[in-house]
């Protein structure tokens, strides 16, 4: 019952981030929508179970939480993400969760500041890493791609297959990295062990993916493919690699910010301006407003939890 806050957060995370990983494969009709969401759901669970441990352990070390605190954190994070979405602002579960943990930690006077600094530095490094990896991939794979001298049908088939594989890898990295947002605090509070937390978190994210909106998926996917198919493939792959690297470091990051960084990187290599005000807004909101709101919401939930009826 206590895990429902985490399940809710995992479900909304899966719904929000599905478009980033399978949008291109659906928009290019490489996969049917149902097959794509099923594939992404499987890979999200695989990623969470096989590589979710480092992130979950990082969250466990940020502060000492009780079961009640864990519920406050997840509900606070879920409410802030929902609120941002209601106002049409971009949201990031990772940053909302860390903001909530920080608020609860400060309230209790138990904060691992070194841990928080590491996490905050990784946030800044996410779009930057996405951009650098995308630039490198675009140039290196481009040389190979040009040398292969494929005809129109071969290059089309290779790119569609690449979009599918990069999407599956992206789903795997999403599960491995973001499962900590969903169940990390419960494992930290000692409610469940790490493997169970990884499985439950992966399953709730998979549920979000399985119930996501087809039109949103197609719109985001078409937007990416419009870059040009090779650019879309590079963006997807760079995003998956970036998120996977942070998984190895044990820091949950925003997949959307990795995508934005990768789009900017591809734009820089191609000499075109891919900067959109909405992208920059996404990064600023992600770095500043989301953790602050996450903290505020966690404090409000905490206050509400301690309210007592006095007759």
């Amino acid at each position: 019952m206590w895990l429902l806050g985490g399940v809710f957060l995992g479900w909304s995370l899966g719904q929000n981030d599905a478009a980033n990983v399978i949008g291109s494969a659906v928009a290019t009709r490489m996969l049917r929508f149902r097959t794509a969401i099923l594939l992404a759901a499987v890979f999200v669970v695989l990623g969470a179970v096989l590589e979710g441990r480092p992130g979950i352990e990082t969250y466990s070390r940020l502060t000492h939480l009780t079961l009640g605190d864990a519920v406050v954190v997840t509900v606070g994070a879920a409410l802030s993400v929902t609120l941002l979405s209601l106002f049409g602002l971009p949201s990031s579960s990772s940053q909302a969760t860390v903001g909530s943990i920080l608020a609860v930690g400060l309230l209790k006077g138990q904060c691992n500041l070194a841990g928080f600094t590491k996490v905050a530095m990784c946030w800044v490094g996410t779009p930057l890493g996405g951009a650098i990896i995308a630039m490198g991939l675009y140039l290196v794979l481009g040389v190979v791609y040009n040398r292969l001298r494929w005809n129109l049908f071969q290059s089309d088939a290779a790119l569609r297959l690449g979009l599918l594989l990069a999407g599956a890898y992206g789903a795997y990295a999403l599960g491995a990295n973001n499962v900590a947002n969903v169940m990390g605090v419960f494992a930290g509070a000692g409610v469940i062990d790490v493997p169970t937390a990884a499985l439950a978190g992966g399953a709730s994210m998979a549920l979000g993916i399985l119930t996501c909106n087809r039109r949103v998926i197609e719109t985001v996917g078409r937007g990416l493919v419009r870059l040009n198919p090779y650019g879309a493939f590079v963006v997807l792959l760079a995003q998956a690699i970036t998120v996977h690297i942070y998984t190895q470091l044990g820091v949950p990051v925003s997949t959307s910010q990795a995508v934005i960084g990768a789009i900017l990187g591809v734009g820089a290599v191609r000499g075109i301006n891919t900067v959109r005000p909405r992208m920059l807004l996404h990064i600023v909101v992600g770095w500043v407003l989301t953790p602050v709101l996450g903290g505020v919401m966690a404090l409000l939930v905490h206050v509400a939890r301690h309210l007592r009826y006095v007759p």
Binding site: T28, D156, V225
Partner: peptide
């Protein structure tokens, strides 16, 4: 019937 990537489709 949606064969090929949209870009290739438009070109052909």
């Amino acid at each position: 019937e949606q064969a090929l990537l949209p870009e290739s489709r438009g070109d052909i």
